[in-house]
Design a protein around this nucleic acid. Sequence first.
DNA 1: GACCAGGCACATC
DNA 2: GATGTGCATGGT
Length: 218
Amino acid sequence: MMRETKNALEGIYARLYHHYGPQSWWPAESAFEVMVGAILTQNTNWLNVEKAIANLKQEDVLSAAKLHDLSEDQLAVLIKPAGFFNVKAKRLKNYISFYLSEFQGDIQKMVIVDTLELRQKLLNVNGVGPETADSILLYAVGKPIFVIDAYTRRVLSRHGLCHRHVDYQELQDLFMRYLEPDKISFNEYHALIVRVCKDYCKVKAQCEHCPLEGVNYG
DNA sequence: GACCAGGCACATC
DNA sequence: GATGTGCATGGT
């Protein structure tokens, strides 16, 4: 059973990587942009997040110091296209305050903190849940942690490796128990899952053409 | 015009 | 501890 699960996880990764190649995620120009995007994309289509980030760049406020100086209302106007703009403005401000006070807005000061200790600090920020925390840990800070999201649940459940509404920690534990902790492969694996879902998993009827069709779990 | 999208906090039972 | 609800835009 354990061996089958390990083989399945490795098989899915091999198949996706062979089909798509490296994804070089996260789609952002800086670590700070990753952090902002991680909050803006909560339950939101990425295209809408891009519009919000474009606004921040347009106004030249995509830095911790400049966002800190904006009022919550000013920020809400700029991130409007990403939806939930009032709550997200609040969450972004919470995160920026945390980032400035705990780390002086210096990502290198996050890098030297132990992964699980840093994860707990992130989770203590109001508005940062497990997925947002792990996205920041992996894609901004470069820590070897596996990111779980709606796409991950969809792919893994359709391949019989978990149930549809599996608990976040339970599914993360599955990946991290069977795979070697490696920030490169964790980065690629999650990005590949997002890629294949966007291409094929919108409706079940497309599954038969998916690169994961007939993947060998042997 | 429905329905959905890379969550999270909070209320209520 | 489990379940329900508000938050809101833009694409399909």
